[in-house]
């Protein structure tokens, strides 16, 4: 399975990447929403995208809106991983098509449990 980690923090990409590789994902990275759309173009498809909200060029919310407007990524599960912790923001992301949401700071266990909730791992 393929996961795309989209975060402008290299440290967060490393932490998430290590966790995802540990549960069998092939991991790709992008530093913002625009890069993520390019990366998706290159690799064709991903099963999971972990997306930060606040990033330069294209933020995570706009990325979600963009991929949800395209039929080819309809099956991709999208999880926001962000410091945005207001309920209104969460609802906005879920209504735009995000499937799950993790608030920073998070533990490795929380990431794995959320991926289980998404049905990608047993």
């Amino acid at each position: 399975m393929r996961a795309l980690i989209i975060d402008d923090s290299r440290a967060i990409r490393m932490i998430l990447g290590k966790t995802l590789r540990g549960i069998g994902f092939e991991v790709f990275e992008a530093g913002n929403g625009c890069e993520a759309l390019e990366r998706l173009q290159e690799i064709g498809r991903a099963d999971l995208a972990l997306v930060d909200w606040n990033m330069p060029e294209m933020n995570g919310y706009d990325f979600v809106c963009s991929v949800r407007s395209k039929a080819e990524h309809a099956d991709m599960r999208v999880m926001m991983v962000t410091t945005e912790a207001e309920i209104t923001q969460m609802i906005k992301a879920l209504e735009a098509g995000a499937n799950e949401y993790i608030i920073k700071p998070f533990s490795k266990e929380a990431v794995v449990e959320k991926i289980q909730i998404l049905g990608l791992i047993p």
């Binding site: 879920l94 608030i103 700071p105 998070f106 533990s107």
Partner: peptide
């Protein structure tokens, strides 16, 4: 705390059955 609320709770249930009290 955020560290605990992230654990095992689907986001849809989090926004429906919880309310924010500060952090």
């Amino acid at each position: 705390r955020p560290l605990d609320i992230n654990r095992g709770l689907p986001a849809a249930l989090m926004v429906k059955y919880f309310e924010k009290q500060g952090v």
